[in-house]
Simulated assay, not measured.
Amino acid sequence: MNSLIFGLPDFFAPGVAAAFVLTALRVGGLLLVAPAWSAKSVPMRLRTALLVIFAVMLLPGALHSADRTQLAITPATFLTETAIGFALGFAAALVVAGAEFAGELATNTIGLSGVAIFDPINNTQSALLSSFMQLMMLTLLLMAGGHIIMLQAVARSFAVLPLGAPIAIDLGFMPLVKAGGTIFASGLQFASPVIAAVLLTNLALAILGRAAPQLQVMSLAFPLQIGVGLITFAGSLGLVVQALGDWQSSYSTTVESFVRAALLAPEPAGRR
C-alpha cells in the first residue's frame, strides 16, 4: 500500500496517538463484518493482532490527510470511524449474503430444508446449499484478492474521508440500506433456474397424477424433485460463478455511493 512508504510516525508527537486509535476504529469496523475477516472461526487474539498490525500499517496514510491539531477521541469520532469501516466491510458482505440467500432458496425449493450441516464460517448449523454457496463465494473472493481489496479501500478512504472530518453518516448509510435489497434480488436471480425446474416438475407430476390416478405419483414426487433440483443447481453453477466474478464492480459502486452521500455533511458553523 502507498501509505507504507512514509515509514512509521513518532507516536509521542501531538495528535499521533489519537490518530492511531481512530485508525484502529476504522479498521475494526471493517473486520467486524467483512467477509473472511469477520469469520468466527478466526480466533479473537488473532483478529486483535491483525487489527493492531493493520492500524500501524495504515497510520502514515491516515496522518498524511488528517489535521492533527483537530484530532480528538470523542463519542462522535468513535462512532464515525467505526461506521466508515463498517460500511466498507458491509458493501462486500452484501455480495456473500446474496449468494448465501440463493443457496437458502434453492435448498427450500428442492426439499432439503431439513438437512443442516456445520457452517465453519459462523460456527452454526446452516442449510446445505446455503453453506455451499457461502464457501464458494468466499473462495472466489479470496482468489480475486478481495481481502486485500477491502484493506486498500480503507487505505484510500483516508484521502476522501480524513480522520476526524465531519461527514453525514446517516446520509451515507441510506445507499447501503437500499443496496441491501440486492441480497433478495440477486438471491432470487441465482436460484431462479432451480425454482423454475422444480415448479415445472411438480406441474408435470400433478398433470400425470390427474391423467393416471392409478400411478403412485406421490412416491415419485420427492426423489424426482430432489434429483431435478440438484441437477439444475449443478448446471447453473457456471452462470452463478460468472456473475459473482464481477463482484468488484458492485462493491466499488456501493462504496462510492456511501462516500458521495456521506460527503454531503455541512461544515461546522465555525469553519464557514
Score class of each variant (00 low, 15 high):
M57I: 13
T74C: 07
T109M: 00
G61H: 10
G114E: 12
G111A: 11
T77H: 02
T80D: 03
V95T: 10
Q70A: 15
G111E: 09
G103V: 09
E104I: 12
E81F: 00
S113E: 15
A102Q: 05
V95Q: 07
P60W: 05
A99Y: 02
I84E: 02
A97R: 10
F101S: 10
G89V: 03
R68A: 15
G111F: 05
D67V: 06
E81G: 04
A99E: 09
F78Q: 07
L88M: 04
I84C: 05
A87S: 15
A66M: 08
T107Y: 02
A91D: 05
T107W: 02
M57Y: 07
T77P: 00
L105T: 13
L58E: 03
G85A: 09
A97Y: 03
G103C: 08
L79G: 04
V115D: 14
T69A: 15
V96E: 13
D67L: 02
M57E: 11
S113C: 05
A116C: 04
A72G: 10
G114T: 13
P75R: 09
G98N: 06
G89P: 02
G103A: 08
G114C: 02
L58N: 04
G111P: 06
Q70G: 14
I110Y: 02
Q70M: 14
T74S: 13
L71M: 09
A62F: 04
A116Y: 08
L59M: 10
A83P: 07
I73A: 06
